[in-house]
Simulated assay, not measured.
Amino acid sequence: MPIANTVGSIGDGLKNTLVTFERARCHMAAWGYSLGRRALEESIKYSQERTQHGKQIAGHQLIAEKIATMATQIDAARLLTLRAGDMIDKGIRCDVECSMAKWYGTEIGVNTTRQAVQIHGGNGVTKEFVVERLAREAIIGPIPDGTTEIQKLLIARMLTGFKPLDN
C-alpha cells in the first residue's frame, strides 16, 4: 500500500482508533438517553391523560416516583455525555469519561423505556403506543462500541492502572 494512503501519522493507528471509540461511545450514550427522553415525554403525556379510579395516574405516588427517577437519570446521562463531548472538542483524552457516558447513557435508555412500558400498563406492549418500539430499540444500545461490562472493565483499569498480564 502506498504511503500516500496512510491516514494520520505512522505509528498512531491505535491512538487514532481509541479517539474514534471516544466519539462513538458519546454517540451511543446520546442515542440511549434520547430514547429514554422520548419515553419519558410519552409517559408524562399518558399519565396526564389516563385515569384510574377517577384520578389521573400522574397523581399516583408510584407513577410520580417513576417519572421523577426517569427524569433525573436521563439528565445525569446527558450531563455525563456533554462532559465527555466537551473534552473531545477540546482535544483532551477522555477514555474514562466516554466509557462512563456510554455505559450509563445506554443502560438508562433501557431502564427508562422499560419504566415507560410499565407506566403504560397493558398499552405499553401494543404497537399503538411508541414506548413499545422505544423499549425494543433501547435493548441493543449497551452492546455496540463495547458492552456495559467492557465499559466497566475499562473504567476500572484506567482508574487503577491495572494491566492484565500478557499471555
Rank of each mutant, 00 (worst) to 15 (best):
K45R: 15
S9Y: 02
S9F: 02
I150L: 05
R38Q: 08
D75G: 03
D75C: 09
T81F: 00
T113P: 10
L40Y: 01
K66S: 02
W31D: 12
F21K: 09
V117E: 04
W31E: 14
E149F: 02
N111T: 14
M100C: 05
D86Q: 10
W103I: 06
M158V: 15
C26F: 01
K127T: 11
S43Y: 02
M28H: 05
G121K: 14
R157V: 00
H53L: 03
S9Q: 13
L165D: 08
E42K: 08
G91D: 06
Q115L: 13
K127N: 11
R38K: 09
E132L: 10
G11V: 11
C98T: 12
K127Q: 15
D75E: 11
T69I: 10
I88G: 01
Q151N: 15
H120W: 04
A77R: 09
R23C: 14
S34D: 13
I67M: 02
M70P: 05
A156D: 10
E107M: 11
P164M: 06
R23H: 14
K90H: 08
L82K: 00
T106C: 07
D86T: 12
A156P: 01
M87D: 06
A156I: 01
G59E: 04
A24Q: 07
E65A: 13
G124P: 13
W31Q: 03
R83M: 14
G105P: 11
G36S: 11
I74K: 09
S43P: 14
E42P: 10
G109F: 08
P142R: 07
P142M: 11
S47W: 00
A29V: 08
H60K: 11
S9N: 12
Q73V: 14
G122A: 12
L62H: 12
I119K: 08
T69R: 13
N5M: 15
K45D: 06
D12F: 10
L154Q: 11
L134H: 07
R50G: 09
A138Y: 00
R25S: 01
E49Y: 09
Y33D: 05
Q115M: 15
G91S: 03
G11L: 06
R136D: 15
K102T: 05
G8V: 10
D86N: 07
Y46G: 05
R38D: 00
A101T: 00
N5P: 06
Q151I: 03
G32K: 05
N123E: 08
R38C: 03
G161I: 04
R93F: 03
G146A: 08
T69F: 09
G36E: 02
W31T: 15
M70Q: 11
H53A: 04
A4N: 14
K152P: 07
I63Y: 04
C98Q: 04
K66W: 07
A39T: 05
G124S: 13
E42M: 05
